[in-house]
Computed example of a mutant assay.
Amino acid sequence: MRRCATGTDSASDIVTGNRPRKGGLMLASGRPSSGFGLACIASGVLAVAVVAVPSALAQGDRIRPVTDAELENPSPDDWLMWRRTLDGWGYSPLDQINRENVVDLRLVWSRGLRPGRQQGTPLVRDGVMFMPNPRDIIQAIDAETGDLIWEHQRERPDDLGDYMIGTLTDTNRNIAIHGELIIDTSMDDHIFALHAETGEMVWETEILDYRVNPANQTSGPIVAGGKVFSGRSCDPRGGPDGCVITAHDAATGEEIWRRRLIPAPGEPGDETWGDVPFDERAHVGSWMVPSYDPALNLVYVG
């Protein structure tokens, strides 16, 4: 991990000499403002120009559990899901960075990510950044200093590449947070939860047998109403039963329901497949991150 700054400011001036108050950002002038964290991912490097809050773990405080109410109406002080809100808008109400002062932002620290396809979006809670890396690796990073708090690297079967689309086995766009858990789907077709403070495994559940119904878990889940919703990119080799959307209990990992996206004979939508035999129907994946409407209690995924 390296720290740097541009212009005449030194890294120590920005990080320690003029430390922003809690919830603050630091402009190049050294003047603190309030409540913003910015992350930029490019070429395998996580670059943070602005720090949200001092690390809760570094101060001995606990990471506050995330509630369903917070996920429905998140505070602008944290970034609790892929596009911040359940509707997937990706909009932040913060306004401290604007057209006039954005030119004054300076790099405070950067940290290399694990090799692979970089499509991940970090979550932030109480000054801790949770970053999905390629190849089923998740890191917890101090958002103020860039220091690694913990890293979880899932053991992947040696024959995974024999059954999966090889270029997608590195992709991990998104993770979810609920309660004290960081939740993700894995390339060996499991869903699992880690403790947010330690990175230790809390539960894991097999969604599919990747040797029978392979499906690429590239998008990651969202959580709403205590349920973890996830879709996947289904492989033709996996047959219709690999093309599913699932819901799991966020606290235990127990499967609540699954919805196959390819209808069997006699099911609604069967007529749209004409004379194609059921076992030859394929390529109806739901590989993007879901969104959710709490008023209608509907999940949207495509």
Results as ranks from 00 to 15, higher is better:
Arg2Lys: 13
Cys4Ser: 14
Cys4Thr: 13
Ala5Trp: 00
Asp9Ala: 15
Ser10Met: 09
Asp13Val: 07
Gly17Ala: 07
Gly24Trp: 09
Gly24Tyr: 10
Gly24Ile: 10
Met26Thr: 13
Ser29Val: 03
Ser33Arg: 07
Leu38Pro: 05
Ala39Leu: 06
Ala42Cys: 09
Gly44Cys: 12
Gly44Ala: 10
Val45Thr: 14
Ala49Gln: 11
Ala52Lys: 13
Val53Thr: 12
Gln59Trp: 01
Val66Glu: 03
Leu71Asp: 09
Pro74Ile: 06
Leu80Ser: 04
Trp82Glu: 09
Trp82Ile: 05
Arg83Cys: 08
Arg83Asp: 12
Arg84Ile: 00
Pro93Lys: 03
Asp95Leu: 09
Ile97Met: 06
Ile97Ser: 02
Glu100Gln: 14
Val103Ser: 13
Gly112Arg: 15
Gly116Val: 11
Arg117Cys: 05
Arg125Met: 07
Gly127Glu: 07
Gly127Ile: 09
Gly127Gln: 11
Val128Asp: 03
Val128Arg: 03
Met129Thr: 08
Phe130Pro: 07
Pro132Phe: 03
Asn133Trp: 03
Arg135Ser: 14
Arg135Val: 11
Ile138Glu: 00
Asp142Gly: 02
Asp142Glu: 04
Ala143Ser: 14
Ala143Val: 02
Thr145Cys: 06
Asp147His: 05
Ile149Ser: 02
Trp150Met: 05
Glu151Phe: 05
Gln153Glu: 15
Gln153Asp: 08
Arg154Gly: 02
Arg154Trp: 12
Glu155Ser: 12
Pro157His: 04
Asp162Glu: 13
Ile165Pro: 04
Thr171His: 12
His178Cys: 12
His178Asn: 10
Asp184Glu: 11
Asp184Met: 13
Thr185Leu: 09
Ile191Pro: 00
His195Asp: 15
His195Leu: 02
Glu197Lys: 07
Thr198Trp: 05
Thr198Phe: 06
Gly199Tyr: 02
Glu200Phe: 06
Met201Lys: 13
Val202Trp: 05
Glu204Pro: 02
Ile207Thr: 10
Arg211Gln: 02
Arg211Asp: 00
Pro214Leu: 01
Thr218Asn: 05
Val223Gly: 00
Ala224Phe: 00
Ser230Arg: 07
Ser230Ile: 13
Gly231Cys: 12
Arg232Asn: 15
Arg237His: 04
Arg237Lys: 14
Gly242Trp: 01
Gly242Tyr: 02
Gly242Cys: 03
Asp249Met: 00
Ala250Ser: 14
Thr252Gln: 01
Glu255Ala: 04
Arg258Asp: 05
Arg259Cys: 04
Ala264Trp: 07
Pro265Ser: 09
Gly266Ile: 03
Gly266Thr: 05
Glu267Phe: 08
Trp273Asn: 06
Asp275Pro: 01
Pro277Phe: 07
Pro277Trp: 08
Phe278Lys: 00
Arg281His: 09
Ala282Trp: 10
Val284Trp: 03
Trp287Asn: 11
Met288Phe: 13
Met288Cys: 11
Val289Pro: 04
Pro290Val: 03
Ser291Trp: 01
Ser291Pro: 00
Ala295Glu: 15
Gly302Leu: 05
